[in-house]
Design a protein around this nucleic acid. Structure first.
Lengths: 345, 345
DNA sequence: TTTTCTGCTGGAACCGGTTCCAGTAACAGC
DNA sequence: GCTGTTACTGGAACCGGTTCCAGCAGAAAA
């Protein structure tokens, strides 16, 4: 293919001058710049990023590690990351990390270890201490979404506070039998989301003077998961709660579908609230606390760019590293929640 | 960082020997190989893929262009692509291409034009002639999923035949008023999927001697899209069909949700069939034709690797290029379809 | 014994850019 | 007039690998 030497020859200048003309760094007279650009266009020259990054150390490439692609939150984040990075001229290399496995190790030991990235964005991955260390040792900026990760600037919502808000919404409507359906805290894959939302729920209940006995039902973090638990929790009319706080909109929708199948009126007989702001929420008239994954993605990219722009002054970095950007969630009230129509006992 | 020269020095050999020892190409005695490997491990040497690809021309990186990330089919394909590529030691660089736009042009003109990829996989993107040309001019293997793309090996299901199968299933059950709810063929973004499924539906109807008047309702290709159209199509009891073939499982589920809200029994009063094999299908007892996106992804990767392994003999390539791998779909019957319980007229 | 082959190694060129440094010309200030 | 600065350009080194080529043993073939 055509290299910059060909461009230089055609334009009648030295390689160095051609490089300056095309990259825009250093002195080049306007006349020669135009000549070089014309020559480049004429032979269809495209720069080799490999060669450039070999000497500059910059790759214009960002690595993204993410545990799921198909789940709503993650795919939204991913889309926004890709858009934001592309707009800044960065490529995005994607690593879909499942739970601890040989592949996972190979990503950390082999793929991430090579000097291919200017920075890394970690989305909602529960990282082991060793993995965090390894990432830090890369010496490249690292931004987290949904953290926190040790010594890493992380973008996240406050899961505890959000869960508390959701619970308080139900309690404020006058519900007594409030139940939480969410991910199992034992399943560490989902970061601390499960346990944090659970603890937000518990603390809101305790603050309201409610018992926290037998009011948490773990389920798979998906619509079928919510559906299944919904069927069993709502199955017995005598023990049926009047309100359910679901850890995600998908779970909430699964619960609503189960309720409808059982002939339970929502919200007359059962109030349901979720967290997410899922596009299906409107269709199921689901009251929810919206988090905004795309905004989180955009913020992560701009945080990364800020770190990249910062001159590599190791001391300043260590000092300022490890802070947290907490994003607000907002309550969107639809008609899946109301006061308890037929309060029992 | 440590370079291969450091390894060579430590092992007491030349750079060339160290390179051979670590890459496994060319003659190296077992004794020196071990010494080099030990030295590399000692100083934590990791090869720079940039430097290597600069001279070999191989980047061990594959570009993937895809129009959506959050839609089920696409996210499944993406996950399987990532896994398969990773297993083969390839990085995956992701481009999420929306409809025609400036960003889209920049991907083709700037990002893809650089020599960063060994190959490109295009997933369900409707490419313009100019874009196909540009990809071909890269001189790198190109594999499509959900094509066909001109002169490109493509993995796909037969959308026409699959739609025909779905329609025939409903007709075979004795349904007379069969309706198709699917994507608008005018919306070109989704490749030819919309129009192909529609034409498969039409041809099955015609073959069965049915009229094709007013039996297609375009909708957004999503669950809310199906829900909305479902409400309006099913709203009037006098014109209500007894069976609906939805172009995707998400649309089908939207229709089912609408039917349930309207108090219409499925399948007693309404049969619904979809296409996909979506994980929600089971929960809604949806009869569907499963396509297997993960298998499509895996096949695309192995096809790409085959092309990469092939010695670059331009003639042989041109000759063999442009064939199609058609994957079967399989009918999974659940309880959203049955014979018409109360046939009208 | 001489020649050929095989296994192994090192030196050097090379991939395609960027950047440092030296050098020149023009122009300002003294 | 001389010196200092500024704008611009070219030569060469360099990034970190891979690969070609030559050289050199020792073993096998003639």
């Amino acid at each position: 293919m055509s290299a910059i030497a060909d461009v230089a020859r055609l334009a009648g200048v030295a390689k160095a001058t051609a490089s300056r003309a095309l990259s825009g760094r250093g002195y080049v007279s306007e006349a020669t710049r135009l000549r070089v650009v014309a020559a480049a266009r004429e032979i269809g020259y495209v720069a080799s990023p490999n060669a450039a990054s070999l000497v500059t150390g910059r790759t214009k490439n960002v690595g993204v590690i993410i545990p799921f692609i198909s789940r709503w939150f993650f795919s939204e984040v991913l889309e926004s990351l890709e858009q934001a990075l592309l707009a800044e001229g960065y490529d995005m290399t994607l690593y879909n990390l499942p739970a601890a496995s040989a592949e996972r190790d190979s990503v950390f030991e082999y793929f991430l270890a090579r000097k291919r990235f200017d920075g890394v964005i970690s989305v909602g991955v529960a990282l082991s201490e060793a993995e965090v260390d390894r990432l830090h040792r890369l010496g490249r900026p690292l931004i987290g979404i949904g953290g926190p990760i040790r010594d890493v600037h992380t973008i996240a919502i406050d899961d505890v506070a959000t869960a508390r808000l959701a619970t308080e919404h139900l309690l404020g409507l006058g519900h007594v039998d409030v139940v939480h359906v969410g991910g199992d805290p034992i399943d560490e894959m989902d970061f601390r989301v499960h346990s944090q939302r659970l603890s937000g729920f518990y603390s809101a209940m305790r603050d309201a003077g409610r018992s926290t006995d037998r009011c948490f039902y773990p389920c798979e973090f998906s619509m079928p998961g919510g559906y299944e638990v919904g069927l069993s929790v709502l199955g017995d009319p005598r023990t049926r709660p009047t309100a359910i706080f679901a850890a995600s909109d998908e779970i909430a929708i699964g619960v609503i579908v189960a309720a409808r199948e059982l002939g339970i009126q929502v919200p007359a007989e059962l109030s349901v609230i979720g967290i997410d702001g899922h596009p299906y929420a409107d269709m199921f008239r689901l009251t929810t606390l919206e988090q905004h994954p795309r905004r989180q993605g955009r913020l992560a990219v701009s945080a990364l760019l800020t770190e990249l722009a910062r001159p590599t002054d190791a001391d300043a970095r260590l000092e300022e590293d490890g802070y947290l950007t907490v994003l607000p969630t907002n309550l969107v009230i639809r008609s899946s929640t109301s006061g308890p129509h037929r309060p029992r006992s």
